[in-house]
Computed example of a mutant assay.
Amino acid sequence: MGFTIFALLFVGFMDLWENTVDTIALMVVAVVIAVTVGLPLGVLAARNSIANNLMRPILDGMQTMPSFVYLLPGILFFGLGKPAGIFATIIYAVPPVIRLTNLGIRQVSTEAVEAAHAFGTTPFQLLTKVQIPMALPTIMAGINQTTMMALAMVTIASMVAAGGLGDNVLRALQKNQPGNGAIAGLAIVFLAIVIDRLTQSVAQEQEDRRSVG
């Protein structure tokens, strides 16, 4: 809590509040869309070997591609601006949630799945009542990683005029102002730490509820 207050005060006193809010807004939109797309694809990959085999090389390519490359299709489809930055961020950040959703569901014990089948559960009930709850810690880790990657990409997306704290870093580089660049960089680091702690606390709360239940 103390660090969060310090981070927010630092952002405010350094006159970076508006750009920080822009960064958070861009990141939240990208993460929501990435998770909305990634969770169903992860479930599909976990329950269908053909889909898993098709997705694996695509995800490998997405995670090894240099992040700057993702800006090109964003510019091609949307031109310069926030939509291009969000589009590039979604593509860059979606693989972790797909992979870890897939992994989490596959790691659910066969005994639990067999017991659910013995009670006559439907495939949908098996997924929503057994597999997803038991895989939730791994899925939340995937969402956390997607969030962190989205924050990193949103910063890079300033190169396509997406705005946010990345603009401060970019201007500092262009004008050779290492001090301003360091301040903006620290703001990004503080923001990443705060968001990471928030997502981890949500994951821990979900795990505690599952343990109590």
Rank of each mutant, 00 (worst) to 15 (best):
L72R: 00
L72S: 05
L72E: 00
L72F: 14
L72Q: 00
L72A: 15
P73C: 09
P73L: 06
P73F: 02
P73Q: 10
P73H: 08
G74R: 11
G74I: 07
I75V: 15
I75W: 02
I75K: 01
I75N: 01
L76E: 00
L76I: 14
F77R: 03
F77A: 11
F78L: 02
F78K: 07
G79K: 13
G79N: 12
G79M: 13
G79V: 10
G79Y: 13
G79W: 12
G79F: 13
G79A: 13
L80Q: 03
L80I: 15
L80W: 09
G81M: 07
G81V: 06
G81Q: 10
G81S: 06
K82Y: 01
K82C: 00
K82Q: 14
K82V: 14
K82N: 00
K82F: 00
P83Q: 05
P83K: 02
P83M: 03
P83W: 04
P83Y: 01
P83V: 01
A84F: 07
A84P: 02
A84T: 05
G85K: 07
G85C: 05
G85N: 03
G85S: 03
I86Q: 06
I86P: 05
I86M: 03
I86L: 02
I86S: 01
F87R: 05
F87A: 12
F87Y: 15
F87N: 06
F87T: 07
A88Y: 10
A88V: 10
A88P: 10
T89R: 12
T89N: 11
T89H: 12
I90N: 05
I90Q: 08
I90V: 15
I90M: 07
I91E: 01
I91P: 00
I91H: 01
I91R: 02
I91V: 15
Y92Q: 01
Y92R: 09
Y92N: 06
Y92W: 09
A93G: 06
A93Y: 06
A93N: 09
V94R: 04
V94K: 00
V94I: 15
V94W: 04
V94L: 15
V94T: 13
V94P: 04
P95Q: 08
P95C: 08
P95V: 10
P96R: 10
P96S: 11
P96Y: 11
P96M: 09
P96T: 13
P96L: 11
V97N: 12
V97H: 10
V97P: 13
V97I: 15
V97A: 13
I98H: 10
I98Q: 11
I98M: 14
R99I: 15
R99T: 14
L100A: 06
L100K: 06
L100H: 14
L100S: 06
L100T: 05
L100P: 08
L100I: 03
T101L: 13
T101S: 14
T101Y: 12
T101F: 09
T101W: 13
T101N: 13
T101V: 11
N102I: 00
N102F: 11
L103M: 14
L103S: 14
L103W: 00
L103T: 15
L103G: 00
G104V: 02
G104T: 02
G104S: 01
G104R: 04
G104E: 04
G104H: 05
G104C: 06
